[in-house]
Design a protein around this nucleic acid. Sequence first.
DNA 1: TTCCAGGGATCAT
DNA 2: ATGATCCATGGA
Length: 287
Amino acid sequence: MTYEKRSRGVYITRPDSFNISETLTCGQVFRFSHTDSGFTLLAHGRMLCISEDENEIRFNYPRGDLSIEGFAEIWADYFDLNRDYTEIKKVLCRDDILKTAVDFAPGIRILRQEPWETLISFIISQNNRIPQIQKSISNLCRRYGTPIDEDCYAFPSPEQLANASIAELMECRVGFRARYIADATYKVLSGEIDLYTYDCPEQMKERLLSILGVGNKVADCIMLFAYGRYDYFPVDVWVRRVMSHYYFGGREAKLDEIQQLAKDKFAGYAGFAQQYLFHYARQTEIR
DNA sequence: TTCCAGGGATCAT
DNA sequence: ATGATCCATGGA
């Protein structure tokens, strides 16, 4: 996907398989908000303003200039712009059910998010609702993160989060997940867990599973959303519902049945399939 | 009131 | 190994 510098921002004209609204609201990322003209996104310690129409997507920083080099360095990777989603969707749409889900939101892209933020965010996501997840993360950032702009804060580093006691984490409304956050912070800060170098994905997933409060589903989300392992297929209540409904005749399918089917049907594209299905299931209230 | 949420830890068999 | 119960919080 090509992008160009124009006035004070960066523009993508006639984006291919890329819709900002679908990509941000499909449930993979929590640090964005609606504005009168589009969205603001908080990531990589920056606030990015984004707007779109049928013809183009516009990116800019509210203060200062967004250069083409800066965009290429940070955001092209974040929005996964160098991947051919037309090809991915072509393969997935050979399955009629996936075709329905893809056609429902054909502009979804899997964002490449920061491992540490993804880890904490998806610990918070467990047995929780998306608006509450967003609030809890926002509370953590406001209290422990570095200020970026007016009432905008970067996601706190492990060092910054280490200043939080369990009681203070609870005040951020993370509930019983407070001790999970504390455990993750300790393990990363002490070097017991290195999130940034690994030999193979299985090794990283095993590491993640050793963190209190990180089970199979949360670990799969981190592998998919932070490490770009698109062969992982996180199964939550919605994915289980939509898979049971369409592929198992309405019978409540077991986890390993679903995983196996996803592997057989979608293979290396299972992660993409998961996100199209998750969004479709949630928006259409499949049960 | 009761139920449930992008689950997982813990306890009971 | 597998299954039930509990966990904070807040909205429906």
